[in-house]
């Protein structure tokens, strides 16, 4: 497996607080994968995101980005360039009052020549589907559009991986859908590794792998089809399985022979129809 991010026994606590946020956490993220990190508020998932690009350093244990130790200052900018970060509040990560200038910000910081910045900005805006807004003022855009501008600003660094900390929490359904489609495009067309931190089950369902974190520990890890069948376990971590799985599970309890893995409405309907026709 070609690993891009690796946590080895990472532990972390915030200064002046009791209790660790992360306990002895080990996790490897495969290059080119789409991983959802799921957890309730306060589970430590945002802290984990900050370990990934050396915003925070673990108290003990190690975090490696592409083999580079995040605690090694010499690699700091190399790590941050490779691991792009997108945060929850789109307003608070837009630096400039013109869209193209904002998208250019990271590339400018990296000292990329102006012609190359131009190309990267245009490409990044095309990737997120915001080309027509190149000269707009960001504050007049919708939440979903702002978030896509923030994503474009990160792709302009040409990162290997993008870590998003609840990027859709403040968006309406249309904005959420656009952001999710953009993430799939990044992964499928540019081969960028995506780590999506979320508490929306339907978003996690779209990943290839779901890691559930609770109280700073990994409690479930696997393909969505596997993780979401653990209805009771999820409930005990303040999360809930998708509505389809809950329905199938209730049917199973009532003695109907349906698989819990039929998570999309189509698969669910098919499974129920098949079970009823038996």
């Amino acid at each position: 497996m070609d690993t891009i991010l690796r946590c080895e026994h990472a532990a972390f606590h915030y200064p002046d607080t009791d209790g660790a946020v992360l306990h002895d956490l080990s996790l490897s993220i495969e290059r080119g994968s789409f991983t959802a990190v799921l957890g309730h508020n306060g589970s430590g998932k945002s802290t984990l995101a900050k370990l990934f690009n050396a915003i925070l350093l673990p108290d003990s244990g190690k975090v490696y980005v592409d083999g580079m130790d995040t605690s090694d200052e010499a690699h700091l900018f190399d790590i941050r360039r490779r691991i792009g970060m997108v945060f929850q509040n789109p307003d608070n990560q837009i630096v400039s009052s013109v869209v193209e200038e904002d998208v250019a910000f990271a590339a400018e910081n990296l000292g990329v020549p102006p012609d190359e910045i131009r190309r990267r900005v245009d490409d990044a805006l095309a990737t997120v589907g915001m080309t027509e807004f190149v000269r707009h003022a960001p504050h007049l855009l919708s939440g979903g559009q702002k978030q896509r501008i923030a994503i474009a600003g990160v792709i302009a660094m040409e990162p290997d991986c993008i870590v998003l900390d609840e990027p859709t929490a403040m968006l309406d359904p249309a904005g959420r859908r656009d952001v999710m489609q953009t993430l799939h495009r990044l992964r499928n067309e540019l081969g960028i590794t995506v780590v999506l931190i979320t508490h929306h089950m339907d978003e996690a369902l779209q990943a290839d792998r779901v890691v559930v974190i609770s109280d700073g520990r990994i409690v479930l890890d696997g393909a969505p089809g596997d993780v979401f069948t653990h209805c009771d376990t999820l409930a005990s971590y303040s999360l809930s399985a998708p509505e389809t799985v809950l329905l199938l599970s209730a049917l199973q309890d009532a003695g109907l022979d349906v698989p819990l893995t039929a998570m999309t409405p189509e698969a669910c309907a098919d499974a129920i129809a098949a079970a009823l026709s038996e």
Binding site: P173, T244, L247, E266, A269, D270, A273
Partner: peptide, 17 residues
């Protein structure tokens, strides 16, 4: 541009079938 609850989606598909 709005969605119906997941259970409704499943039941519409069942009715279609």
């Amino acid at each position: 541009g709005l969605t119906v609850p997941a259970v409704t989606k499943v039941f519409r598909l069942l009715a279609d079938r």
